[in-house]
Design a protein around this nucleic acid. Structure first.
Length: 596
RNA sequence: GGACCCGUGGUGUAGCGGCCCAACAUGCCAGCCUGUCACGCUGGAGAUCGCCGGUUCGAAUCCGGUCGGGUCCGCCA
């Protein structure tokens, strides 16, 4: 309950029958007015709710006159007695719906222009650009307000859980050093050091590891991070991560600690959303890839990928044979009851598969007599039965098959089709929270463009200790102590046990083509620190906006961000970015070159 | 860097070569209305169809470009 103030005695979400008879003062926005001439009703709104206030020409002529002149979104202050609404006129939709305020005094605190969109109604088709331009009005709208309050409760619950568990919040700087690893940096010119630049953090990765060396063995922070990369609905140029790091822990310990926090927070913040499975299931990266075609699988539904290698091994169909002989794979999913899909629907699915890297899509309908129908059916030779056995297909089902000489490409393309079919068949229950850990990622992947091995995740991640010796001998075979947390098909966060010994970190970096001098230059502080008693440590970072969006059942992080950027990085309200004037440029020793 | 979709009174939509100096709903303004809660009734104002150029006798409608927004690939953890 908010502290009492002189402007108001109560909020607009507060009054109940127990207040009847009291004289109260409320202040808020005119949400909607219903003017009956001699009697008028106002819904008065603030962030706590809506209360109906009434003016009457007979009882309070001056207030009634002021009410008649008031308009939506004006800010007014009203005083009067709380009374029961007459029999049969209560509003069960409103928590305050049993009472109303009989206004005897109305003060207009500020007028409002007619807003560019409805503040008092949901408007599904409303142009997002307009909402962003007038974000302060958009944020007034109850659904947006609920999401902002949910986000606040989420962050608050996270803090409470972590602090209860002895974590300390430590802020790290926003002006740090640029490193070429990872995403492109946002950069800030250093006025006092002409020609030099700070970078804004992509994450406080090195700093939190240094805090471990410093002995703050349980650190967390609501860390603002910036990455100068193209936006998506689940990522923007700036975001907040729940950044966590712990010392004297193994992978088990971090997972257990974070999982307990996530469960407690979820139950507190969205008590009506069931957690599908707790303890959270754990999949290795390999299992996730092979069963769901994703390293962030949506476990709310089944429809697993089926490996058709055995089933089609003797089939002469070129698409399959080439994929298999090329070291690839043939995977299928079974879409129950979709055998009657139209040409158009199948084309859409084929297009989706292609967009996600598949060469094409083979579709087979299971006929009533058990035979398979489809353009590729005639090439299957005698393999129909084995394909059906491998997929469990029954009459009326649709089989979607992707073959590729790159097994990861085949699986991920089909993984996208799985999600699409999950949507089309309504299998992705919007109420359920299906958290899942994915771990044991390959430590390195071969980067064809760079011609060298590169870290699959964060370059500071430790290898599985028992595998570390083979690092140089067979980089592709070893795994990182890396774990991602996924929720309903989104990557919520990721972390790892870090390398805490300098020699091992140098070996890992060397493998990725770094020279000793280059390492010293970019990561000197961390390398040095590892020589001063760095404890074994590891952590995780959870994307707050993604988590919040999922808890709010939104599929876009802008819906849980107060002032988001557009896809092209603009702030439509502030008109940022913008040019700066010549004097500012001169102070920063910068010259703008807009050629090419 | 690329692909696709969207852009018509304040807002959301319809119109997709002449019947459109543009229709509907809502909002807005005015009048009436003493129990409404998307109050109701009556009347009124309001857009040259994102912008530029082209095709055509004729363009909101077709074509090209451009700007803004979105989704996706690349990128990004």
């Amino acid at each position: 309950m908010a502290t009492a103030q002189s402007f108001r005695t109560h909020t607009c979400g507060e009054l109940r029958p127990e207040h009847v008879g009291q004289r109260v003062t409320l202040a808020g926005w005119v949400h909607r007015r219903r003017d009956h001439g001699h009697l008028s009703f106002f819904d008065l709104r603030d962030r706590y709710g809506i209360t109906q206030v009434v003016t009457s020409a007979d009882e309070a002529p001056a207030a009634h006159q002021a009410a008649a002149e008031s308009r939506n979104e004006w800010v007014i202050q009203v005083s009067g007695a709380v009374r029961h609404r007459p029999e049969g006129t209560t509003n069960v939709e409103l928590p305050t719906g049993e009472v109303e305020v009989a206004v005897d005094e109305l003060t207009v605190l500020n007028e409002s222009k007619v807003p560019p969109f409805y503040v008092n109604e949901e408007q599904p088709g409303l142009e997002e650009a307009l909402r962003l331009q007038y974000r302060y009005l958009d944020l007034r709208r109850p659904p947006m307000r609920e999401r902002m309050l949910l986000r606040a409760r989420l962050a608050s619950a996270v803090r409470r859980e972590l602090e209860r568990d002895d974590f300390v919040e430590i802020e790290t700087p926003l002006l740090i050093r640029s490193t070429p690893e990872g995403a492109r940096d946002f950069v800030v010119p250093a006025r006092l050091q002409p020609g030099n630049f700070y970078a804004l953090p992509q994450s406080p990765q090195q700093l939190k590891q240094l805090l471990m060396v410093a002995g703050y063995d349980r650190y967390y922070q609501m860390a603002h991070c910036m990455r100068d990369e193209d936006s998506r609905k689940d990522r923007g140029p700036e975001f907040t991560q729940v950044d966590i790091e712990m010392s004297f822990v193994r992978e088990e310990d971090v997972i257990a600690t974070v999982e307990a926090m996530v469960i407690a927070v979820s139950r507190e913040v969205v008590p009506d959303r069931p957690i599908q499975e707790a303890p959270f299931p754990r999949l290795t990266y390999e299992e996730a890839l092979v069963r769901y075609g994703s390293d962030k699988p949506d476990l709310r539904f089944g429809m697993p990928l089926c490996d058709l290698r055995e089933a089609v091994t003797n089939v002469e169909f070129r698409v399959f044979a080439d994929a298999l002989s090329g070291g690839g794979a043939v995977y299928a999913i079974r879409a129950p009851g979709c055998a009657s899909y139209s040409r158009r629907q199948l084309d859409e699915l084929t297009d989706l598969a292609r967009r996600h890297g598949a060469g094409g899509l083979v579709h087979l309908s299971v006929e009533a007599d058990g035979s398979l129908r489809g353009p590729a059916a005639k090439f299957l030779g005698g393999a129909e039965a084995s394909v059906q056995a491998a997929t469990g297909a029954e009459a009326g089902d649709l089989l979607l098959v992707v073959a590729d000489s790159d097994r990861v490409a085949a699986a991920t393309a089909l993984g996208q089709l799985r999600l699409e079919m999950g949507d089309r068949l309504g299998l992705r229950d919007p109420s359920v929270l299906a958290y899942v850990w994915v771990h044991r990622f390959p430590m390195f992947k071969w980067d064809r463009d760079l011609g060298r091995w590169d870290a699959t995740h964060n370059p500071f991640s430790a290898p599985v200790w028992e595998e570390a010796e083979q690092m140089e001998a067979d980089p592709g075979s070893i795994h990182a102590q890396q774990y991602d947390l996924a929720l309903n098909g989104w990557e919520l966060g990721g972390g790892s046990i870090r390398i805490h010994r300098r020699d091992l970190l140098e070996r890992a970096f060397a493998l990725m083509g770094h020279t000793i001098a280059g390492m010293r230059d970019q990561f000197g502080a961390l390398l040095d620190a590892l020589e001063y008693g760095a404890p074994p440590h590891g952590g995780i970072a959870i994307g707050l906006e993604r988590w919040c969006a999922l808890l709010a059942n939104q599929d876009n992080i802008r819906e849980v961000t107060a002032f988001p950027k557009t896809q092209s990085g603009s702030d439509l309200m502030l008109s940022a970015p913008s040019p700066i004037d010549d004097q500012q440029l001169a102070d920063l020793h910068l010259r703008v070159n807009l050629e090419d």
